[in-house]
């Protein structure tokens, strides 16, 4: 299901690359992994996997969380997070099956800070605005705080003419914030429209999974849409499509490669090539 590697990693540098860009900005933080690769079944050595950006030898890309994405893309010491103090609240008094306030508090205790984190950084020396989704926080869902951070980031990137790089991993809009979560689609797209109008490059990196309100707003509107091999990308999830239409879905439905065929993404890029590819695109679009 995944594309084979086109390059090999030696001491953190991709050898096939034209430009020598390190595979990661800094050493990636450890992430929780299963004992075996779900794709090829090989036993995993966490430290080894971490060296190759959490990509198994078979090409399976493990889901990375927000911190890991920031470490992967931002140069060492360049990450300046913005608006981390903007916090979510239980607005609808959501009680069942689990009180929303409790969900928020728990996530905060685990050290998670909302589903979207945004800030400035340099990517291989090129200044960028960076927005990353974190799937661990209520499924990476778009909420008022997430929308606010994204919209402010787009506005500032437009004002300072800094390219924006977004990494998505989301189930859609957050149910627990009701229609106000839906309004975030319009809010971020309004700000994104201004980013485009200011002629600032915007690159969207789609990772597993990207669905619902996120793909129906900012995720697929990049000047270049890049996707990770094997990532599930779509609007309605396969489970819901089966329930609603009783249709048999072909294997690989909604995979990154499927979306490439359907014309929704420009490039399917293995994770170890991503940084080099983004650096090259940044040069092309700002050259």
């Amino acid at each position: 299901m995944s594309l084979p590697f086109r390059g090999r990693v030696r001491e953190g540098v991709l050898l096939v690359s034209m430009v020598h860009v390190p595979v990661t900005g800094t050493k990636l933080p450890p992430i929780a992994l299963s004992t075996n690769c779900p794709s090829c079944g090989v036993g995993l050595v966490p430290e080894e996997l971490r060296e190759q950006a959490y990509v198994c030898d078979c090409g399976h890309h493990f889901r990375m969380h927000g911190d890991a994405w920031i470490a992967l893309l931002a140069d060492e010491g360049s990450w300046r997070e913005r608006w981390a103090d903007v916090r979510p609240h239980d607005l609808l008094d959501w009680k069942v099956p689990k009180p929303y306030q409790q969900t928020i508090d728990q996530a905060r205790q685990e050290g998670l800070n909302e589903a979207v984190r945004t800030g400035t950084a340099t990517l291989a020396g090129r200044p960028v605005w960076l927005g990353v989704f974190d799937f661990r926080f209520v499924g990476g869902t778009l909420s008022i705080v997430a929308g606010e951070r994204l919209a402010r980031g787009f506005e500032q990137a437009a004002a300072s003419h800094t390219p924006y790089v977004l990494v998505t991993a989301s189930g859609g809009a957050r149910m627990q914030e009701g229609v106000l979560a839906l309004m975030q689609l319009a809010k971020v797209n309004a700000a994104l429209g201004r980013l485009h109008a200011a002629r600032v490059p915007y690159f969207s990196v789609l990772t597993d999974p990207t669905f619902g309100g996120v793909s129906a707003s900012l995720a697929l509107l990049g000047d270049v849409n890049l996707a990770e091999p094997g990532a599930a990308i779509g609007f309605t999830g396969a489970r819901v499509i089966k329930q609603a239409t009783y249709a048999d879905l072909p294997p690989g439905f909604q995979s990154a490669e499927f979306q490439l065929e359907c014309g929704q993404v420009d490039l399917v890029v293995p994770r170890v090539e991503l940084r080099e590819r983004l650096a090259r695109l940044l040069d092309l679009y700002t050259g």
Binding site: A216, L220, F235, T236, A247, L249, F253, C262
Partner: peptide, 14 residues
Amino acid sequence: AFPGAAAEERGIAA
């Protein structure tokens, strides 16, 4: 929006 395979293939999200 229509939650079906045809809509997905033709790019409903975009």
